[in-house]
């Protein structure tokens, strides 16, 4: 599966690049990423929520890096979800901050059947990348993912159909989402 998306963030390019380069920040804005352990300058270990309540893991290797410009990565041998991608940073014209462009390619577990299962569970890769970049912008500009009672976990297009009504959450519902 292939997806690309872009967003403009009203923060200086070194700050935006620096936040992205610190992969430990990813669980803050990527819906599916649960944990990232950084081993060294190029290697890290990723754990993410997969379809049907499963957890998937992989090691990632930074294959190219140009400060304030570009980060490219690919998963190492033996990944549950083989993936590769590149993120490019460029100054937006005038005082408009930083443009961030992401391209991702991945093979879901289970090959073509896995792809179908993922889609049945509402996991559209394009929407996911769009949502994640929207959340990235929120984290960069306001400091955290923005939640409404309809979307206690923040922007998540696949969840639109089963949104919580626009009324306050119960104690139990609120417990998991408090800052």
């Amino acid at each position: 599966m292939h997806a690309n998306s872009a967003v403009t963030v009203l923060r200086p390019i070194d700050e935006v690049y620096g936040f992205w380069r610190d992969f430990g920040n990813f669980p803050q804005f990527m819906q599916h990423v649960l944990e990232v352990k950084v081993y060294d300058d190029t290697r890290s270990h990723w754990r993410a929520a997969g379809p049907a309540g499963k957890t998937v893991e992989w090691d990632a290797i930074v294959t190219e890096e140009r400060p304030d410009e570009l980060i490219a990565w690919q998963s190492a041998e033996g990944a549950d979800v083989a993936n590769r991608g590149v993120v490019r940073f460029s100054p937006a014209p005038g005082d408009r901050g930083t443009e961030v462009r992401v391209e991702i390619e991945y093979t879901p577990p289970g090959g073509p059947l896995g792809t179908l299962v993922a889609k049945l569970f509402g996991e559209e890769p394009q929407q996911q990348v769009d949502d994640d970049l929207r959340r990235f912008k929120q984290v960069m500009e306001v400091g955290e993912v923005v939640r409404s009672e309809g979307t206690p976990d923040g922007a998540h297009t696949a969840g639109l159909l089963e949104q919580h009504p626009g009324q306050p959450l119960t104690e139990d519902e609120a417990r998991n989402v408090r800052p």
Partner: peptide, 25 residues
């Protein structure tokens, strides 16, 4: 309105870029 995005900084608070988690719809 978040007060931090480009729209809010220009005083265009009703088109804040961060306050609608359902922006995709």
């Amino acid at each position: 309105a978040c007060g931090a995005c480009a729209s809010c900084r220009q005083g265009l608070f009703s088109v804040c870029e961060n306050s609608n988690p359902n922006a995709a719809i």
